[in-house]
Simulated assay, not measured.
Amino acid sequence: MEDENTMYELCRGGENSFYIQSPAKIGLVKLNETDVCLIDSGSDKEAGRKVRQLLDKNKWKLTAIYNTHSNADHIGGNRYLQGQTKCRIFAPGIECDFTRSPVLEPAFLYGGFPPKDLRHKFLLAQESEAEYLTENSLPEGMSAIPLPGHFFDMVGYRTKDDVVYLADCLSSRETLEKYQIGFVYDVAAYLDTLRMVKELKATMFVPAHAEATDDIAGLAQYNIDKVLEIADKITGICKSPVCFEKVLQRLFNDYSLTMNFEQYVLVGSTVRSYLAWLKDTERIDVIFDDGQLLWKSRE
């Protein structure tokens, strides 16, 4: 976690590119002497309020928010900031649909209508008026970098002064050592993204949940290794036919994770994605037996 004393501090990444230190880092890009845009907006209305205070302090006008993806901790400040500043909001592909209708996130994670336990700001942001991200909607000199895998159509952004905002495609070593299983929607796409990011060059990289750095390759490889470790562990658990709930239970117990509703859906959704990938790559088969779907490794 970030030190509370540095929360919402403005840090420089390049000549006109900054990031706001927060639980999910918020990018800020100066477009000219008065206008700025944001890359994501933080987790909730309170985050939006702190961002607005920073904007007011510097006499900056917010013209647009460019969301990387639609997870609640990245779009939670959208509605407040849009209401206060009339800024436009852009989000890529399916992420735009989730941003307009945020109930899709807990519904997707749960696999049905989400109970009240999942309908809170951690997983359910307030809706905002988002537009589909296009090349023409980006400021001059800024480009979007497709980063699929963590979520449906996630993107990063490269600015004119060569700062790259990497959203959630990387977790810090500390986070992975603590929680082991980072959220992944599409394992194959996620590995492709990590391998691409490992080769990227930039003046500065700003991951949302890791320290800014000028060299991302080592952390990218660490994330790749962790994905492959989890895949091997799941394959080992499935040596004998086993149902999904037992796979999940083994992972929670072996990694000393704490089960609650949020962790159940976040880790559960991720484990289902691993199982799908392992089946598609023919490392695991499914068996239907006595009204159950069982997973059985081929190895």
Rank of each mutant, 00 (worst) to 15 (best):
residue 1 M to P: 14
residue 7 M to N: 14
residue 7 M to K: 14
residue 12 R to L: 11
residue 13 G to Y: 09
residue 15 E to M: 14
residue 16 N to Q: 15
residue 23 P to Q: 02
residue 23 P to R: 11
residue 24 A to K: 06
residue 42 G to E: 02
residue 46 E to I: 12
residue 47 A to G: 05
residue 53 Q to A: 12
residue 54 L to G: 08
residue 64 A to T: 06
residue 64 A to G: 00
residue 70 S to I: 05
residue 72 A to V: 03
residue 78 N to V: 00
residue 80 Y to N: 00
residue 80 Y to M: 02
residue 82 Q to F: 00
residue 86 K to D: 11
residue 93 G to A: 06
residue 95 E to I: 07
residue 97 D to R: 14
residue 98 F to K: 03
residue 110 Y to K: 03
residue 117 D to Q: 03
residue 117 D to W: 00
residue 124 L to I: 00
residue 125 A to L: 06
residue 127 E to I: 00
residue 132 Y to I: 12
residue 134 T to M: 10
residue 135 E to P: 02
residue 137 S to W: 09
residue 138 L to M: 14
residue 146 P to K: 01
residue 150 H to E: 12
residue 153 D to W: 05
residue 164 V to Y: 00
residue 173 R to P: 13
residue 175 T to Y: 10
residue 176 L to I: 01
residue 177 E to Q: 08
residue 179 Y to L: 05
residue 181 I to T: 09
residue 184 V to I: 12
residue 184 V to H: 00
residue 187 V to G: 05
residue 189 A to P: 13
residue 190 Y to W: 07
residue 195 R to S: 10
residue 201 K to S: 14
residue 203 T to I: 12
residue 208 A to N: 09
residue 209 H to Q: 14
residue 210 A to P: 09
residue 216 I to T: 01
residue 222 Y to S: 05
residue 223 N to P: 04
residue 229 E to G: 01
residue 236 G to H: 11
residue 239 K to A: 10
residue 240 S to C: 07
residue 244 F to H: 05
residue 247 V to G: 07
residue 248 L to K: 15
residue 249 Q to D: 15
residue 252 F to C: 09
residue 263 Q to T: 15
residue 267 V to D: 01
residue 268 G to W: 04
residue 275 L to T: 06
residue 275 L to C: 08
residue 279 K to Q: 15
residue 298 R to E: 13
